[in-house]
Amino acid sequence: MATGGRRGAAAAPLLVAVAALLLGAAGHLYPGEVCPGMDIRNNLTRLHELENCSVIEGHLQILLMFKTRPEDFRDLSFPKLIMITDYLLLFRVYGLESLKDLFPNLTVIRGSRLFFNYALVIFEMVHLKELGLYNLMNITRGSVRIEKNNELCYLATIDWSRILDSVEDNYIVLNKDDNEECGDICPGTAKGKTNCPATVINGQFVERCWTHSHCQKVCPTICKSHGCTAEGLCCHSECLGNCSQPDDPTKCVACRNFYLDGRCVETCPPPYYHFQDWRCVNFSFCQDLHHKCKNSRRQGCHQYVIHNNKCIPECPSGYTMNSSNLLCTPCLGPCPKVCHLLEGEKTIDSVTSAQELRGCTVINGSLIINIRGGNNLAAELEANLGLIEEISGYLKIRRSYALVSLSFFRKLRLIRGETLEIGNYSFYALDNQNLRQLWDWSKHNLTITQGKLFFHYNPKLCLSEIHKMEEVSGTKGRQERNDIALKTNGDQASCENELLKFSYIRTSFDKI
């Protein structure tokens, strides 16, 4: 039985969820670079991206490699990797027998973001014989899940209580170790020597080791999670996991709180800001991140802002960003909400898709409305799209047979046209069989910064309504002859009103 693990408890099935942008060198404390989270699957090609990484700022997932063999891993080693800020997950990587050479110096898994409450997941690794993470000293947050690894031993010899604050939620089941077939031998045991430290858990006094050649490092209890030197002297209180010299914040392997210019500090002093819960960055760093993602459509890219001495992905609820200094300031009234469309555009074809934009005031991208039916549609669209004030790209209304009016965009005031449909149009209306009105132009103002209007096959939309939009939106004169079809717009509506004058002759039985 794995020490510190839980057996036999019912657990939810383990679901495996399925960018080499360097964020800056980590400095003297770390020998390499800070790398983003990685999802490495199918083959070993991307694994080489770990070569210079000291910190993975995010998670590391290595999974679904069915053609790899043990010899493929023999020359692979990433000794610079010290810390993973989120979680480490391995799933069905064939041929991998140990992690001792792959990650010989991995010391800390912070667990800032977890995989279903777990910071370390080893699942269905069919050839893994031992973990071998002999320098792993601290899992700051989260638990361990090690399950269905039929060859995995050296679990009962690990004292997880020396690595985690609590072992109650560890789930370590259905491994070879369960069948008591392992016969784990710690260093020196074969020669009758006791080389590794022994600890007591559940009444068992057991030597602690990761492999037959690597003991588990056990520091004096007084050192807590700070770690200790090879001689057993406690590291500085700002260290986490390990250090090369005692009581020196510049000799830590990793930091308990924050890293700044080669030393570990309790908090980031001005003019620095907390970033990702582990390091200090200056304003320029946060500003660069903001600008890199301002026009990016890459998933996970955030326009970072500053709030409460932190550089964070977005302002919290009730705050909006001051564009001059990136500071989050309290909103006066309802907060603006910028919604970034991942692929640059979004099609609204149902109430469900409209709900995804609920509360958005600025759309960074283009909207395509293609709704053919739905219950209580006008009210639903207004509830979900009615706060949109600005669209950076274009607005396209296409084959939306259920629409009679666009009044559900009740606050839309600006279409920038930074991206144009077919390279020309910022407003595009095609084949809307029941569209009769755009907006009530006596109450609604709309500016279209650039781009043209396109109207074709809107049989109940009168040309007068379209011409009014040209005047109000500032697009009059931009359109070419064929942009607004004269014969297919309003051709099934009563669009022309003329005053009919009647004269009559009164007659009676005795007068003409």
Rank of each mutant, 00 (worst) to 15 (best):
L29Q: 06
P31G: 15
G32V: 12
E33K: 05
V34S: 02
V34K: 10
V34F: 15
C35Y: 00
I40W: 01
N42T: 12
E51C: 15
N52P: 11
C53R: 00
S54V: 13
V55L: 07
I62M: 15
I62V: 12
L63V: 14
F66R: 01
K67A: 04
R69E: 10
E71N: 14
F73I: 12
R74D: 05
R74L: 02
D75F: 04
S77K: 06
F78T: 02
P79G: 07
K80Y: 15
L81P: 00
M83T: 04
M83C: 06
I84R: 00
T85Y: 03
L90K: 01
V93I: 07
Y94L: 09
Y94P: 07
G95W: 04
E97M: 09
S98A: 06
L99I: 07
L99F: 09
L99Y: 02
L99S: 01
K100G: 07
L102T: 03
N105F: 05
R110Y: 04
S112W: 14
F115M: 04
N117T: 05
V121F: 05
I122V: 08
F123Y: 15
H127A: 11
K129W: 11
E130M: 15
Y134K: 01
Y134R: 04
L136G: 01
I146W: 01
K148Q: 11
N149W: 00
N149I: 00
N149E: 00
N149V: 02
E151K: 12
E151A: 08
E151Q: 05
I158T: 10
S161E: 14
L164I: 07
D165S: 11
S166T: 04
Y171R: 00
V173H: 12
N175Y: 06
D178I: 05
C182R: 08
I185M: 11
I185G: 15
C186N: 02
T189G: 15
T194R: 09
P197C: 11
P197G: 15
V200A: 10
V200S: 14
G203L: 13
F205G: 07
E207R: 12
C209F: 03
C209Y: 02
W210A: 07
S213C: 04
C215A: 06
Q216W: 10
K224T: 10
C228I: 02
A230M: 15
E231G: 14
S237F: 08
G241M: 03
N242E: 13
S244T: 04
S244H: 10
D247E: 09
K251S: 07
K251A: 02
A254T: 06
C255H: 00
R256N: 06
N257F: 08
G262S: 06
C264I: 00
P269A: 10
D277K: 14
V281I: 07
F283I: 13
S284P: 04
Q287R: 15
D288H: 09
D288R: 15
K294P: 13
K294T: 15
R297Y: 04
R298D: 05
Q299M: 14
Q299W: 03
G300E: 08
G300D: 11
H302D: 08
H302L: 04
H302R: 07
I306H: 12
H307D: 15
N309Q: 12
N309K: 09
K310L: 12
C311Q: 00
P313W: 09
C315W: 00
C315E: 01
L327D: 15
L332A: 15
G333N: 06
C335G: 03
C335R: 02
C335E: 06
